[in-house]
Amino acid sequence: MPSTAYHAPGTVEDAVALLAADPTARPLGGGTDLIVQMRAGRLSPGAVIDLKRIGGMSGVHRAGDAFAIGAATPCTALKADAALSAAWPGVVEAANLIGSVQVRNRATMAGNLCNASPAADSVPALVAAGAVCVIAGPSGQREVPVEAIPVSPGKTSLAPGEFVVEIRFPPKPAGGGDAYLRSTPRTEMDIAVVGAGVSIVLDGEGICTAARIALGAVGPTVVLVEDAAAALVGSKLDDDALAAMSQAVQAASNPIDDKRGTVSYRKAMAGVLARRAVLIAASRAGAKA
């Protein structure tokens, strides 16, 4: 039985070198997925590379209107940042639905993303927000949209030696608002049966000028539903537009039956939650319009 080593590098370069040296090595952010999987025997990495000692890896950074979140930033720290919470309340709420307070004090959005569960709560919200990941690797840094990271349940597009160092948000558009809703049997401590992240922009007349709608747990990865967004753009979010949006969401949903939900329930909820999330996002957009 190979033993697992623990390293806590101080620089991104050292972390990349350690990860590149052992393809089974795993970056450790909050550990709330990694350690559970190791304990259950589902994963036995040659090494865990603790990212939290790397400078700048934890915290919310703001450059003008744009936010960047270090990969090792725990979810509760997002909530504590008033400016981020005001700009991207949907993202902050999504991240703060994961697990419990104890879990969110450790869990990170980057980890939530790289665990590559289709049910990850923060991911649909990040995709709706148009967030991108900064990835460090042996050949330097690159940026990819969040939705390009997960490729199938448990698998990411990251190459050996690569890890996410930062999640960047575009400047918040004027008249923009976002929201995330999920369906779970319990009120807390649960995994999304369906999740819906929405980001929209309303003009001064209340007409939707842009929208991004992303779903969790209705496919092998997060699903960005362009038809649903198209159904909203140009409308005042009237009932017909919302119904068309819900229909597009349901059409794009291709879930499975499992212990957490059925196909028919997931499809139905995707439509309901997306509509409710649009209305919340609209109220936020309106409030700031």
Binding site: A8, G31, V36, R39, A40, V48, S100, V101, R106
Partner: peptide
């Protein structure tokens, strides 16, 4: 539980409560 689902192992680490079953000791 050993998986962060019950909170019986809750401790405060640098001012924040965490499940100590989901913290590696070297951390």
């Amino acid at each position: 539980c050993g998986s962060g689902d019950c909170g019986a192992c809750t401790v405060v680490l640098d001012g924040e409560m965490v499940c100590s079953c989901l913290v590696l000791a070297p951390e």
